[in-house]
Design a protein around this nucleic acid. Structure first.
Length: 203
DNA sequence: CTAAAGATGTCCT
DNA sequence: GGACATCTTTAGA
């Protein structure tokens, strides 16, 4: 067994400064980065290929639009934390917080291309089709074993759940579109994905 | 292949 | 009570 992640995956989490600041910028720059989930018994990792930006009082589609609640309070805290919420009565979704303390913002991680721990992901997802492991926000949390227990988790600590640079960066084009599954704020082109990537969610 | 229905916590009116 | 940052299964073209 390898002691760590394997040669190709960095162990250094992105710093707080990466997350602090404009939410839309963070959403774009997260494409191509690597999401890492460390469990006692396994490590999973995948390249982020699809994101959506959710801002604050100026974004009616954002959970933070109407001010803080018990669910969304993490969005109002320090950047660089996980905001994990439960939706549709059965699914979790993973966001990373942005902006600065007191100013809400978050980026929804919608899809990832599995790199490592694929066998474990297949188990959690109950499917052998690799393209279906994390091509949607709730599929991704299922594949990476992310639940509400990780809500508020500090992504800069390098434990349990964090994001790193891709050691083998590839050039890609970024495509931006309207966000998915919402009513208000549809027209804002704040969904970003890697053009042509097979692991982007459908629709 | 597309379309519809069902599961159901949290927040809002 | 109703909407929702979703996914799966089933039914039908």
């Amino acid at each position: 067994m390898r002691p760590s992640f394997g040669a190709s995956i960095s162990t250094t989490p992105l710093a707080r400064a990466f997350y602090g600041g404009d939410t839309v910028r963070v959403a774009r720059e997260l494409l191509g980065k690597v999401l890492v989930r460390r469990l006692r018994s396994a490590t999973m990792a995948g390249v982020i290929v699809e994101t959506e930006a959710y801002r604050g009082h100026d974004d009616p589609a954002s959970h933070a639009y109407r001010g803080p609640t018990r669910r969304n309070i993490v969005m109002f805290g320090e950047p660089g934390h996980a905001y994990v919420y439960f939706t549709y009565g059965m699914h979790y979704c993973l966001n990373v917080t942005t902006e600065r303390l007191g100013k809400p913002g978050a980026v929804l991680i919608r899809a990832a291309q599995p790199m490592k721990g694929i066998e474990r992901m297949k188990k959690y997802r109950r499917t052998d089709r690799v393209v279906d492991l994390a091509n949607g926000p709730a599929k991704l949390t299922q594949a990476f074993d992310i639940t509400g227990a990780l809500d508020g988790h500090d992504l800069t600590a390098g434990r349990k759940l964090f994001i790193v640079e891709n050691n083998e960066p590839q050039s890609f084009e970024i495509k931006s579109t309207g966000r998915i599954g919402i009513v208000f704020g549809k027209e804002k082109p704040w969904r970003f994905c890697i053009k042509g990537n097979r692991f982007v969610s459908k629709r």
